[in-house]
Amino acid sequence: MLTLQCPYCGVWAEETELHAEGEAHLKRFGPGSSDDEFESYLFMRENPKGVHFERWRHSNGCGKFFHAARSTTTLEVFGTYSAQTLEPPQDIKDKISAKYPNWSWRDFS
């Protein structure tokens, strides 16, 4: 059972109180973008074996979206953080680097 701490209300919420909302840090390409950009925004998703960044929603709780960094293989959670950001906070990246020195995920490492 996955347990994540909601950064907005501080509750340690287990999976059934949350809703998975797909990949984190997607950049939206809308009108005026090229077909390739739009296709990659719409369809192309990471499917890593290891470090992953996800968007979750505390749906049976405060209702806020937040981001989580975790490993898809060990289910280890490196941390959760506010969704009002364009990249993971440094302390979470440091925590991942301590465990997986050569990790990379899209443009982050």
């Binding site: 209300c9 509750v11 919420a13 059934t16 109180e17 749906s59 049976n60 709780g61 405060c62």
Partner: peptide, 10 residues
């Protein structure tokens, strides 16, 4: 106060 679910509903 705790917002959560009761069985299947918020």
């Amino acid at each position: 106060i705790r917002r959560t679910r009761i069985a299947q509903v918020p």
